[in-house]
């Protein structure tokens, strides 16, 4: 299995990494213990193991079920309108690993002997920060801007960290589970 050989290689180089308890199905998934090991691991993957392609940078907010206040609802009751789905699902579910953290998810691939590997890094919800990969992969530039825009995670060393998708005037970061939508001039 190439998967396991590559995982073993990385684990030999960086013993502080560990296999993720809830891996992305069918892919090797490693968990980084702290933010400091992010850049060395990614550089090693790129320079020594040929993972020259950063597929994806994204994040997950593990705070709990999504807050219905993040959605815009019509105030007047409509006879055919279904009950808000978010309200029904608002109670926490057993078995889900809710915690007070964001998980940053990185996916890297290589073209020769195609293989994709996932790396995860937990950052605290209070003042979330991580190192920017923009110096290693140019594609991280926009993807990290998107994560910043939607989650409010700061990336140290990013060349141009500002909102990319949403309005400059939007309050808060919409993909956070506790995002509450403030009515703006368009909702009236």
């Amino acid at each position: 299995m190439t998967n396991e050989r590559v995982t073993a290689q990385i684990l030999a180089q960086f013993p502080q990494l560990e296999k993720d308890p809830s891996p992305v199905k069918d892919y090797p998934t490693l968990r980084l213990p702290d933010a400091a090991s992010l850049l060395p691991v990614i550089s090693h993957l790129k320079d020594s193991l040929g993972f020259s392609y950063l597929d994806m940078v994204t994040a997950v907010d593990w705070k709990g079920p999504v807050d219905p206040a993040g959605y815009v609802r019509e105030e007047r009751a409509h006879p055919f309108q279904a009950k808000p789905a978010a309200a029904a699902a608002a109670k926490p579910l057993p078995g889900a690993p809710y915690r007070d953290a964001f998980t940053l998810v990185y996916a890297l691939s290589r073209f020769a002997n195609p293989l994709k590997i996932f790396l995860k890094l937990d950052v605290p919800r209070e003042q979330p920060r991580a190192a920017s990969l923009a110096r290693i992969f140019r594609t991280a530039d926009w993807q990290e801007r998107e994560v910043f825009d939607l989650f409010g995670i700061f990336f140290d060393g990013h060349p141009d960290l500002r909102r990319i998708l949403t309005l400059e005037s939007l309050q808060g970061h919409p993909l956070r589970k506790d995002y509450a939508h403030a009515e703006d001039r368009f909702d009236r």
């Binding site: 993040g70 815009v72 609802r73 019509e74 998708l165 919409p174 939508h181 909702d187 009236r188």
Partner: peptide, 13 residues
Amino acid sequence: FHDSYAVLKGVDK
């Protein structure tokens, strides 16, 4: 997208 935070609910607004 009627309940989205980023969408205008009708261009007639």
